[in-house]
Design a protein around this nucleic acid. Structure first.
Lengths: 144, 144
DNA sequence: TGCTTATTGAAAAACATTATCAATAAGGTC
DNA sequence: GACCTTATTGATAATGTTTTTCAATAAGCA
C-alpha cells in the first residue's frame, strides 16, 4: 500500500501540499526540518505556505508515513519512511540517515528492564549515531 | 564526585541559578521543560530569569549532569542524572521517568547494524515508553 | 461538469529561544 | 573577613518557531 492510499483510506485527501512534502522527503536521505522543506520547495519553484508544511508533516507523522528523528545537534527532523517498526542511524557529519530494523534485539533488554522497574513497556525510541561510509572515506582521504 | 565538583573542575562556578535548577530537577522524577522549571522556581519564591534557566540547562547538559529526554508527546525535557551512560524509561500517563543501565545489551545489535550499513556507530539514543507501577495500579483499581 | 466540504494560504497571534550588555556575585588572595 | 578579578546573571530586545483564524481554493464524488 502506497502512501496515497493510506491517506485515502483514512479519509484524507491527496492534496498538492501533502504530495510535495512527501516528494521532498522521499528524495532526501537526511532528515529535514519543516523550515528546510519549506526552503527546498521555494527554491524549486513549488512554493508552499509554511503552515502547510507543518500541517502536512503533522498528519503524515500521525499516519506513520514519515518518521521523527532527533539529530545529535538537538534539532528535530522528519524522514520519509517506512511502514513497519524500524529505527534510524544518523551520520554525525553529513546528517544522512538510513533505517534499520531490529526491535527483536531489544526484547531481552526490555524484559529485563520490566522486571527491574516494574514498568510495563509498550514502545521505544532507538537511534544510533555514527559516521556514514562516505564520511569515513572523506576522513581517510584527508589524513593521507 | 558530586555535581558541584564537576562544575568546579571544569572551571565553572557553582552559582545560585545553577544550584536552583539542579535542586528542582533532583526533586522531580519527571522530566521538566525549561518553562516548568522556571515556573516551579517562581512559585516557590526563588524566582530566576528564564534566560538563566536556559543557560544553566545548557551547561549542565553539556557536562552530563542532566539528561535530555524526549517525551512521547513530543516535548523535550530534562532530568537530573547520572554519571555514566544510561537510559530512561518514561511513563506515558504520569510522565515519571527513571533511569536504567544496559548499553551492553545493545552491542550485538550495534555490531549487526554496523555490518549491514557500513556506518561506524559511536553513540546512541534509547528510551522506553510504558506505564509505571503506580499508574498500572490506578488503572487496575478503576476497572474494579 | 458541478457540488460539497476538506484543505490551503496569508496575516497575525502566541510561544520559545537567543543576543546584548551593564550590574552582580563567586571564588581566589591577602 | 574584606578585596579584587572576572564569570555569570538578569532585563530587555531581537529573533525564530509554531499555532490560530477564516475566507478562498481545490479534491473527490455523483
Amino acid at each position: 500500500m502506497n502512501w496515497q492510499d493510506v491517506l485515502t483510506e483514512n479519509g484524507y485527501r491527496v492534496s498538492g501540499p501533502r504530495k510535495l512534502v512527501m516528494q521532498v522527503l522521499e528524495s532526501n536521505a537526511q532528515p529535514m526540518t519543516p523550515l528546510e522543506i519549506y526552503q527546498e520547495l521555494s527554491q524549486s519553484g513549488r512554493a508552499l505556505g509554511m503552515v502547510s508544511v507543518y500541517r502536512a508533516l503533522e498528519l503524515l507523522a500521525e499516519l506513520g508515513l514519515v518518521c521523527v528523528v532527533y539529530d545529535p545537534d538537538g534539532s528535530v527532523g522528519y524522514v520519509a519512511g517506512g511502514v513497519g517498526h524500524h529505527h534510524h542511524i544518523l551520520c554525525q557529519k553529513c546528517h544522512q540517515a538510513i533505517a534499520f530494523a531490529g526491535s527483536e534485539d531489544l526484547s531481552s533488554l526490555i524484559q529485563r528492564v520490566e522486571e527491574e522497574t516494574n514498568y510495563r513497556v509498550s514502545d521505544h525510541l532507538l537511534q544510533l549515531y555514527g559516521i556514514c561510509p562516505d564520511c569515513q572515506k572523506i576522513s581517510a582521504e584527508a589524513v593521507e
